[in-house]
Amino acid sequence: MPEIRIENLTHTFGKGQPNELTVLDNINLTFESGSFNAIVGTSGCGKSTLLKMMAGLFAPSDGSMKLDDQIIQGTDRRRGMVFQQDAVFPWMTVSKNISYGPRLRGASAAEQREIEAKWTQAVGLKGFENRWPRELSGGMRKRVDIGRVYANDPDVLLMDEPFGALDAQTKERMQSDLLETWGQSRKTVVFVTHDLEEAIFLADKIVVMSARPGRVHHIEEVSLPRPRTDAMRLTDEFIQIKRRLWEMLDH
């Protein structure tokens, strides 16, 4: 099972130039196999940058990132990513979006049908298989995004504020549904957010980052039992964690 290890990672934009900017400073982190991890921090702490590096979209200037002792270099289907922006392909129907990854690798038509049926069902889009993305709400498009990444069967799921643009109710619903999907396969998840409640509700481990330059400020182990329920959001334990983390963030 996959384990992510980040060692002495530093990233500087425009290194060697007069206006160089260090966004990440000496980060050391381990994300264990099958765990759900969150990274929180105010804007400018480099949390999205860190996540994109894990995806292999660009390389750090110093230090290393490894997945199962293999150095992360370039993108790979093993590390799937859900983006903050809408990344659903508008020129494909819902089911074509879902089966995009398998199709890349030459899955047969029958395999594609099977995957489409399984994942449209799993992310709650049954009945919308042949719709164009423009016909869906923002929340449903995010479901397509998540279903598409799951259908591609990665080992690691990287999520960059995926629910940031959704309204509060939709967001809570999406969080519960995400946990349910995750519970069935227990992929390693790294979830970036600036929403403390979201982080506490979802994660086993929360990395709190401080800004300018981005550093690991604190690591919070969340011991709330699983499966998590919405009622837990109002328990003393939940609120205590929230208060503790809130005081740590630079306001």
Binding site: G56, R79, F83
Partner: peptide, 10 residues
């Protein structure tokens, strides 16, 4: 973001 989505899917 479309390019990034496709390349992270392999």
């Amino acid at each position: 973001v479309y390019e990034d989505a496709a390349s992270t899917m392999g």
